[in-house]
């Protein structure tokens, strides 16, 4: 896949298209089920559609629909949603190189910062391709999200279960496909393993959003010298793939 420098923007986009399209398709079904669930639990469809366009973070939107329509206090719902979305802060710091350029680009690009766009960017090792992957994935996914929520709400209850067709496994599996090539060196692998372990073990004790943030502690494992590992084995910006 390491073609010479002559690749232009168009061929970069064409290369990304099948993966981005299948991710988008999975999001369409998830969005549609969010719309259907919202309508069937009595939330106004226009408001859920506005939320999809303005918040653009699926997990927190399901949380709002679920909690708010069950009569939870607005402050509880809000804190839960913020906490679930707090991972975007470290994402944003890591995407600083991708979102360079003018203030306008940074402000616009920030709104496209979702797990999937970050994953597409991190799966690339070269800066230009990284940027391209982020923008192609981000704009595509943004373009389909709110319309599919609206469509799902209009079509109604029949779509209400994202577990139908095993779609709840499709999104994590898709993200995993993108995460694996980003694990380029041993320190990263150690950080990822420790982080996942910490997050999965702490979910029963903490809020789900907080448990994901606990994984950041795993990053420390990338810095530790490991007994038995040869000294100087540290690879910065490993391009060893």
């Amino acid at each position: 896949m390491r073609s010479p420098k002559r690749t232009d923007r168009a061929s970069d986009t064409a290369r990304l298209l099948p993966a981005v399209a299948s991710m988008a398709l999975a999001l369409v079904v998830v969005g549609a089920s969010l719309g259907a669930i919202a309508v069937s639990s009595g939330a106004p469809l226009w408001l859920v559609t506005v939320m999809a366009a303005l918040v653009f973070a699926g997990g927190s939107e399901f949380l709002v629909v679920g909690l708010a329509t069950a009569g939870a206090a607005p402050l509880t719902v809000l804190l839960g949603g913020w906490l679930l979305n707090a991972r975007h802060l470290p994402y944003g710091l890591a995407m600083g190189d991708v979102l360079d350029g003018g203030l306008g680009r940074r402000l616009l690009g920030s709104h496209l910062l979702v797990d999937e766009a970050v994953a597409f960017a991190l799966a690339e090792s070269e800066p230009r391709r990284r940027r391209r992957a982020y923008w192609v994935a981000g704009t595509t996914l943004y373009a389909v999200w709110a319309p599919s929520v609206l469509l799902g709400g209009l079509l109604g209850r029949g779509l209400g279960d994202p577990q139908l067709f095993g779609l709840d496994a499709a999104l994590p599996a898709g993200l995993l496909t993108l995460v694996l090539p980003a694990v380029r060196d041993r320190p990263t692998a150690r950080a990822v393993l420790l982080g996942c372990l910490l997050a999965v073990l702490t979910v029963p004790l903490l809020d789900e959003g907080l448990a994901v943030l606990v994984a950041l502690l795993g990053t420390a494992a990338a810095l530790l010298p490991v007994p038995g590992a040869r000294r100087g084995a540290y690879v910065s910006e490993g391009e060893a793939v």
């Binding site: 990263t188 999965v200 994901v212 994984a215 990053t219």
Partner: peptide
């Protein structure tokens, strides 16, 4: 970048 990959992987695991 290691932190972002770790966070993303943890999100997948959870």
């Amino acid at each position: 970048s290691v932190a972002a990959v770790t966070l993303l992987a943890a999100f997948v695991a959870v």
